[in-house]
Design a protein around this nucleic acid. Sequence first.
DNA 1: GAAGCGTTATACTAT
DNA 2: ATAACGCTTC
Length: 679
Amino acid sequence: MGRLARRLTGRRGDDFTDETEMTELFELNAEQELAAKYNQGHVLVLAGAGTGKTRTIIARAAYLIRQGVDPNRILLLTFTRRAAREMTERLVKIVGRDRVSLMAGTFHHFCLYTMRRMPGRFGLEKTTVIDRDDQIQLMKLIRAEFRQKGEQFPQASELVRLCSYARNTTQPVPEYLSRYTDYESEMADRICEVAVAFDRRKRKNGYLDYDDILHVFAKRLHEDPSTRDQVRVLYDHVLVDEMQDTNPLQWLILDGLRDPAQLFCVGDDAQSIYAFRGADFRNVHSFTDRIPDAVTLRLEQNYRSTQGILDLSNWLLRESPIGYNKILRAHRRAVSKPRLFNFDSDFDEARWIVDDLIERHETGAPWQDHTIITRTGFGARAVESFMVEKKIPYRFIGGVSLLQAAHVKDLLCLIRASANQHDELAWVRYLTMWPGIGDVTAARLIRTMRNQTHMDDAVNALKEELKGRRGIIKGIYLVQEYWDDPAETIRQAGRFLESLLEKRYTNWKVRKKDLDLLTRLAGRHRSLMAFIETYTLDPISTTESERLEEEDLVTLTTAHSAKGTESTVCYLIRVEPGMYPHIRSLGVQDQEEEERRTLYVAMTRARDELIITRTHRPYGPVQMHYSATGTHSAGETVYFLQTLPEKLIDTDFVDPDSTGFDDYDPITPWRRGGDGISF
DNA sequence: GAAGCGTTATACTAT
DNA sequence: ATAACGCTTC
């Protein structure tokens, strides 16, 4: 293993068995090199956890660039924007900044970016990208129109979920409902009507939700040959990370891009954890069916973890009724058996972890070597509370987004309303902030703007209706005045709304700091709508945004957001019945299996040390589902560590009184960034 | 009829 | 912390 590779990965590289196995050019082993340089058409690389998946993709990009391929003609599709950033940075270190001009981002970013560059072809003038919350808000309006008095009707969030899932699996809603859900045909018909109304309403308001971004792009790509030709000639190589978590809609996009472009897709069926978004891990297996001349290559040597960590991970997969046919072999000599700690409560668990972190830090380990992995954001609240109390610097990836805070939304809705008279949700929110204006009046006011094509006419029409309430319009004019200076607009809008917000929120002083933060973030963007769009597509948590400049942090992350990352020391918390598998998945075998893979992903993040902690209290009202032995009544195991062999792990019980902490002050996820943050 | 206040339930993963 | 809901007030 050469110096370059060591520098690139930050790996210590002190215990590898064979230093000469890596080849000179990209520090790859033979399997990786074969994949990176493959040039005979489309490829699927099946790569187990820690086998150098990311490294191989980067090596391929570097190889192509060195071969003379124009970087602009390489498209790199990743699962998160964070992954795209990290991969781009690593590539820069190999080929130099001036040569890294390739397009790297998520499917959503790529599709939106491309559509924005050819607005005429996709009809996207003046559209606003909306997040899950806005989808649900809009659906509530539609649901209210369809639901009869006192009638049982699915919640708005459920309706959104149904529409979203159908779209991501490229099924018409009626077909999806009849095949995969239990709704009576009468109810199914009405849900279909709701779905149609939902789409119509989105179009009317100029909204694009996450699913529309992919759908509109894929549809045009397949239905309009001239658009397809125009897009398809842009790239020679499409590199796809985390292929196992792409859904049928994303496959349509890849299918539309290929030929002459070559696909290079990397994935691991055992790490597929996004079925709820329409992904199906079996899809990686059908790759060669869909593209008959494609080949499948494999990476099997694990460079990340110790054998002890892999033994436990391998055991977990072997216990599955599904044959994953996968055994990870460690390349490293170190063994380091995982450790399991049992606690009475999540308080005890949290303070032990925080205590352990402090001890490690005092003996020289940087904070950044440590990652705490949680199944749910809620499940991490005790840990987060103690980290705040003990002033441990941390970021929570997958935590509550800054843009979801009510006061931030208030401000952004003023911005959105100022840009688009048809942005119904933004207008409702802005107008109802004012005393005397509720839902009904807001809806009436919005109706007066409905037929106006131009923003100025719309505002004038509104002005007529609002005689004597000039303040409301003043906010709109203020935003429009500073429009070209995003940071200044946010600052001015914040100042303008202050008197309203002060009355509405009891802890305004703390919330006000978030608006300062928002102003700083906006300063990094050229336009306001681009700023909002960026953070809608790439939700940034409050802890992340507060700590943009800091490097040495403990990472707290959900297992889902941990995918694709690694850490020297990993704490897996609340690994108890009800959490793995999560209570909501019980009884549905596919979902329980996905939970197994989620735990597998979490375990295989660890390089040197894997510390598993749990409490004796099952999570949630899980007791009802379990007998004393942790099984369903039918007898199958519903807690993954129930049959854990002793030899795979060192087990400890920690006495609750062994550490000296103050009383527990539970922090709820939504209080984050409230009165709790104090470093 | 609409606004606004107080009470209550809420709890999985995410582009 | 927030939203939904029911109830009171204008």
